[in-house]
């Protein structure tokens, strides 16, 4: 099912007769990867669903203008990370206006989430990831969970490979310290 190439999808998408079919193929190929990336960033399923739909609507609107000098999947990842971070920043602003005194407690949120089945170590790992600076968090998620190459990550995050390696190094060390220091 996912053996169709990105090139074929793009060609079909350019044809109005096969545009919707191409989009369906694109979604079937990438929806899970994009969803899980978003979910690991925003944590909550409903939030991830909203962000995921926004990502693919943006793809629908802008795929025509996609320049093929980069890979389709890094372009999708770029949109997904940007949308997720934008969503989180908006959420933080809302939270700081509405409930400024109550701290955001990820542990409680995960424990109450019916769509989270991790044990205590997994909860603490998510806490550790959430405590990272934005850039390090993105690098760690893409490398640790999505097993992305630094070169592809460089396209996605628009950062040099050296800087990405340093960010990953710092992220891993911080997470280890967080987990072993519990």
């Amino acid at each position: 099912m996912s053996k169709i190439s990105d090139q074929e999808i793009l060609e079909k998408f350019k044809n109005p007769a096969t545009k919707e079919a191409a989009f369906s193929l694109l979604m079937q190929k990438y929806q899970e990867k994009i969803y899980w990336l978003i979910r690991r960033i925003v944590i909550d399923h409903e939030d991830a669903n909203d962000v995921c739909q926004n990502v693919f609507i943006k793809v629908w609107r802008n795929l025509d203008s996609f320049k093929e000098n980069s890979q389709l999947y890094t372009w999708l990842y770029r949109i997904a990370t940007n949308e997720s971070l934008t969503f989180l920043n908006r959420k933080k602003k809302k939270a700081s206006v509405q409930i400024s005194t109550e701290d955001y407690d990820l542990t409680k949120q995960l424990e109450a989430d019916p769509y989270f089945e991790g044990d205590n170590l997994q909860i603490q790992l998510q806490n550790a990831i959430a405590s990272l600076p934005e850039k390090q968090r993105m690098v760690f998620l893409l490398r640790y969970y999505d097993e992305m190459k630094y070169e592809d990550m460089s396209e996605t995050l628009d950062t040099s490979v050296g800087a990405l390696k340093a960010s990953y190094h710092h992220a891993v060390k911080k997470i280890e310290k967080y987990l072993t220091g519990l």
Partner: peptide, 30 residues
């Protein structure tokens, strides 16, 4: 090399989605 401890942590996905979510996601988004 970076963290022997973290390397031992299972890299499974603890997150779940409602049943049939991905089968309908493409259609709904479209």
């Amino acid at each position: 090399t970076l963290s022997p401890f973290l390397a031992t942590v299972e890299r499974g996905n603890p997150f779940r989605v409602p049943g049939g979510y991905f089968t309908q996601l493409a259609q709904n988004t479209l």
